[in-house]
């Protein structure tokens, strides 16, 4: 399981193994406003999967459902075969789902060090946490220089690095990233994408929500396109990247 899961998987052999994360027939609504209509998707261990879509397509809500911050009205979320919708967010986090939230959500008044260690809040293996902490410092030299600085004083790009480091500190089996490149300078966009790719090659499974399709598909293995609460396209990243239909999905539905 372990070595197999580290290899890049594709859509074909995904059917034969159990996916790490699976959303089945998800319907969601905020009051009278329905956000999801029967959404199905899955993420295999070892993959980078991106969920694409324009404004108000329901992308971020998908993330909130996986993390237990929003309850779907119907359908099931399975993580490693176990139904997790209905669990609280802390329970889900303890099962091994880490989060890099939208707009980073760094603890602004806590130091960089405290922010990193908050990522390991649910872990009890102190020794291993200390080791992971050292690894993070090596991985993010920029953060190492600023350990006693408050999180809120970092630049946007540094905060994004911190958010990713914080998620890694939890040793998650799946990392959910909500718009990790949003609002970053081009320099940091590249750094973040390279980092995502690198941690993936080291065995982390990544599910990311992105607006920026061109960027996300360059590093992802597979992608889904969400439009008005429905999955309208899915497939290998290369295929999606060159599919002209994706433009229509982004520019608006076919009313003209």
């Amino acid at each position: 399981m372990n070595t197999a899961s580290l290899a890049r998987t594709n859509g074909q052999n995904a059917a034969s193994t159990n996916p790490l994360l699976e959303l089945k027939d998800i319907d969601t609504a905020y009051g009278p406003i329905q956000v999801h209509f029967g959404v199905n998707l899955h993420v295999n261990a070892g993959e980078i999967v991106c969920l694409l879509g324009g404004n108000a397509s329901g992308k971020s809500t998908t993330m909130k459902i996986i993390l237990g911050l929003v309850r779907p009205r119907a359908g099931a979320v399975r993580f490693d075969g176990r139904v997790i919708n209905g669990l609280t967010t802390p329970q889900i986090v303890r099962l091994g789902i880490g989060s890099v939230p939208e707009s980073r959500r760094i603890f602004a008044q806590m130091t960089v060090r405290e922010n990193l260690l908050m990522g390991a809040y649910h872990r009890r293996d102190r020794h291993a946490v200390a080791e992971d902490y050292e690894r993070m410092l090596a991985l993010f030299p920029r953060l190492k220089e600023r350990l006693q600085q408050r999180g809120g004083t970092l630049s946007g790009g540094e905060q994004q690095m911190l958010a990713i480091g914080r998620a890694l500190m939890g040793r998650p089996r799946l990392i959910c990233m909500d718009e990790p490149t949003m609002g970053l300078s081009p320099l940091y966009v590249d750094r973040v994408l390279a980092l995502i790719q690198q941690i993936n090659t080291q065995g982390y499974t990544i599910f990311m929500v992105e607006q920026n399709a061109n960027l996300a598909l360059q590093i992802a293995h597979r992608g889904y396109v969400l439009q008005n609460g429905r999955i309208v396209m899915e497939g290998q990243a290369d295929a999606l990247l060159n599919d002209p239909e994706i433009q229509d999905a982004y520019l608006g539905e076919g009313v003209s």
């Binding site: 911050l69 959500r105 603890f107």
Partner: peptide, 13 residues
């Protein structure tokens, strides 16, 4: 500082 982010770190708010 951030209730929702704390939950995502596993804090039982």
């Amino acid at each position: 500082q951030d209730r929702e982010a704390a939950q995502q770190m596993g804090v039982d708010v």
